[in-house]
């Protein structure tokens, strides 16, 4: 859409207004140094001091049964069984020499076609949140998966 002369003038005036209101700000090298120092400090705080309780927690498949509903977990294991269902795909994932956990990808929330092609024995990394099925059994509702070659 072509701007009319009036609208264009208004846009230019708005820009001039910003220029005018910033008129008293001087851009000296010392200001840039302070800005960079603040960015460094903010970055270090976010990287090393930010609470990361809600981030994915690395766990083994067996320990999911003991976890609280809603906790975000990252786990890896061997695919034992894959079931395609009307609502999504369910995978039985087992750690080496330990227990298993059921991970579930809802058709609504996740791309499930690739998961159906998984074969027993394949190594899978999974990220998701702990959910409780009827009866209180814990399973992992998948956010994302990665097949390890």
């Amino acid at each position: 859409m072509r701007m009319g002369a009036g609208e264009r003038r208004t846009a230019f005036h708005a820009l001039d207004g910003i220029r005018h209101s910033l008129g008293k700000i001087e851009l000296a090298p010392s200001h840039l140094t302070i800005l960079l120092f603040l960015m460094l400090c903010a970055g270090l705080l976010m990287l090393y001091a930010w609470p990361t309780d809600s981030a994915y927690q690395k766990v083994s498949p067996a320990s999911v049964a003991l976890m609280q509903e809603g906790e975000w977990v990252a786990l890896s294991g061997q695919v034992q069984q894959v079931d395609g269902r009307a609502t999504g795909t369910s995978i039985q994932l087992c750690g080496i020499g330990e227990g298993c956990v059921r991970v579930f990808a809802s058709r609504k929330e996740t791309e499930t076609e690739g998961l159906l092609a998984l074969a027993p024995g394949q190594e899978l990394r999974a990220w998701g949140e702990v959910a409780a099925a009827t009866g209180g059994t814990r399973y992992v509702r998948l956010h994302r998966t990665q097949v390890m070659d």
């Binding site: 960079l36 960015m39 970055g43 270090l44 976010m46 930010w50 981030a55 975000w72």
Partner: peptide
Amino acid sequence: TEAQLPVLLGVFAIAAAV
């Protein structure tokens, strides 16, 4: 995820400043 944003943006801010 939103939970990882502070860490990612933290490293990004440090790197952009450097």
